[in-house]
Amino acid sequence: MKFGRPDTEFMNGGGSLMLVSCSCLMQLSSWSLLEANYFKRYVYNDYNFTIATLWSPFLVKSRDADHRGHDINSLMSLYLDEPDEAWLTQVEQFDYVIVSAGQWFFRPLIYHENGRVIGCHKCEQDMTSFVTSYGYRKAFRTVFRTLRSLKNYKGVTFLRTFSPSHFENGAWNEGGNCVRTSPFTKEETKLDGYVLEMYLTQVEELKAAEEQGLQRGLQFRLMDTTEAMLLRPDGHPNFYGHSPHRNMTLADCVHWCLPGPIDTWNEILLYMLKTGYRPSR
């Protein structure tokens, strides 16, 4: 694999990467690709089937708020009660919608609700400070509320749960990396700390959406991948996945290699679609 990891064990087992994985699994069929900015659609005319990614890292409306410009850790504003128009204008045409978001919520953020600033997250400004899960919860609540309110939306909504990172030997900006070449055993790690908090936040909001969705006959279903991915520190690019001529000083222990562990996500999705399986919570 060009610019890929030298080991291959990560390819065993199991966002936008899920779409790429799914498209790879369907390579035997003819398809066409439509792209616009971060949005992609794979159209399979033989099957009257389209898969797409509607890129919206916060799910709600956002904009840059840092006078120094945008970078990997710059300040951004989130409008927690306003859905992102990027997906809102297109979502009604889909039969199945997978909602996911995660790591972007750890950056410095200013929170807006009801047309005013209510506080921030890691902003180092003189205002109310909120924990990460506050904005995360409000974003999912807004998404689920919006989907229930859309007159022409009749799709099945899946929540794909939080995907953990695996930095070791330091944080992402402090020399952290992910050099492991085999999965954790269940005895080596467990679902706790911030990963558990983010996971439970999502699940609680989905449960509320499930109950409220019944009034319109809408299904909200849990696609629970968090614990499985927690066991896969070997599935990230680390310093690979790019031209060796690029000067990479930060390891990527957030995104996933393809092929790799996230191929399992599509296997889980297919199983849920075929059987109607609903995981117990």
Rank of each mutant, 00 (worst) to 15 (best):
F106H: 05
R160C: 08
S133Q: 15
H67V: 15
Q103Y: 09
Q103N: 15
E124H: 12
Q125G: 00
S129D: 07
G69D: 04
W104H: 08
G175Q: 10
P83G: 05
V143C: 03
K122E: 12
K154D: 03
E174T: 07
Y96L: 02
S62E: 12
K154G: 04
S100K: 02
G115Q: 09
F144H: 01
C123Q: 03
G176V: 04
E82A: 12
C120P: 07
M127F: 06
G170K: 05
G170P: 00
A86T: 14
E124P: 02
Q103K: 10
G119Q: 14
H112R: 15
D64F: 07
R145F: 03
T89K: 10
V99H: 02
H67T: 14
P83S: 06
G69H: 06
S133W: 06
P164D: 07
F167A: 12
Y153G: 02
H70T: 10
W172R: 11
H70E: 10
F167Y: 15
V131P: 10
Y134L: 03
M76F: 03
V156P: 00
H121T: 14
G170V: 10
A139N: 04
D66I: 09
Q90L: 00
L88A: 14
E113A: 14
F130I: 13
R145Y: 04
D66L: 08
A86F: 01
N173T: 13
D81F: 07
T128V: 11
S165R: 09
N114I: 10
D84W: 01
S133D: 15
D71P: 00
Q93H: 12
R107W: 13
D126I: 09
S163E: 08
H166Q: 09
H67E: 14
S165G: 08
G155K: 01
G102A: 08
I118Q: 10
Y79V: 11
R68A: 15
A171P: 00
F130E: 14
A139E: 03
K138W: 01
K122P: 05
H67C: 15
V97E: 01
N73K: 07
K151M: 13
T157P: 03
F94R: 00
N173H: 14
R116Y: 11
C123S: 07
E82P: 15
G135T: 09
F94Q: 00
W87S: 09
S133E: 15
W104C: 05
C120W: 09
G135Y: 03
E168H: 12
T157R: 01
A139C: 05
E124S: 12
N169A: 07
N152I: 05
N152R: 10
L109T: 10
S129L: 08
S129E: 11
R107P: 04
S74I: 13
R148H: 09
N173C: 11
F167P: 02
S77E: 15
F162C: 07
V143Q: 00
V97R: 01
T146Q: 07
I118M: 13
A86L: 06
D95N: 13
I110R: 07
D95H: 09
E82Y: 04
L109F: 01
S62Y: 08
W172P: 00
Y111T: 14
S77T: 12
E124D: 13
S133C: 10
W104R: 01
L159Q: 06
F167T: 08
Q90I: 00
F106E: 08
T132I: 06
G102C: 08
D71W: 14
S129C: 03
I98R: 02
S133Y: 05
R141I: 02
D126L: 05
D126F: 04
M76L: 05
